[in-house]
């Protein structure tokens, strides 16, 4: 049987560790990896008129940059390591969007890193890993 792992990836060290963990699982159990990169975005944010005008252009630039600087290199690495991997890139609230990707791709597991910032900021704003433990539609592994 083939397992599908959705890995939340953002080019940080912790995300890298989560990906390495997913690779070892995928190799051991025989599975494929979906590298999910979320560009944080809210349709309810406030923009100036100039930002409105340029939004479509900026979005293209952001997608191209994320593709070339983040997703493409990591997919190339994965290809070398012999694990089947695809990329997924979307705009949205990070935890919600990772869950949406997992649902759409019928994933078996979500794997994310955590930034481990304790203290006040996290208490107030929450964290992606913390939110995922509450809302993930499939089992969720948090890699320290």
């Amino acid at each position: 049987m083939s397992n599908i792992f959705v890995v939340g990836y953002d080019d940080s060290d912790t995300a890298r560790r989560a990906l390495d963990f997913a690779v070892s699982r995928a190799k051991a159990q025989g599975g494929e990896i979906i590298v999910a990169h979320v560009l944080e975005w809210s349709p309810y944010s406030f923009l100036s008129p100039t930002e409105l005008e340029e939004r479509h252009k900026r979005r293209q630039q952001e997608l191209e940059r994320a593709e070339s600087a983040i997703l493409a290199p990591v997919l190339k690495d994965l290809e070398k390591s012999g694990v089947k991997a695809t990329g997924a890139m979307r705009y949205g609230q990070i935890a919600d969007t990772i869950c949406a990707i997992a649902r759409d791709e019928k994933a078996d597991q979500i794997i994310v890193g955590r930034h481990g910032e304790g203290g006040l900021a996290q208490r107030v704003f929450g964290s992606v890993a913390g939110t995922l433990t509450q809302i993930a539609p499939v089992p969720c592994t948090i890699v320290p």
């Binding site: 560009l39 309810y44 939004r55």
Partner: peptide, 25 residues
């Protein structure tokens, strides 16, 4: 509220954003 917005267009200017900017004027 975005009920009729295609999720594929996430990241583009939403109805809410256009309205909010016009209102600020």
């Amino acid at each position: 509220k975005g009920d009729y917005s295609d999720p594929k267009n996430a990241g583009e200017v939403s109805h809410f954003q256009a309205l909010a900017t016009a209102l600020s004027g």
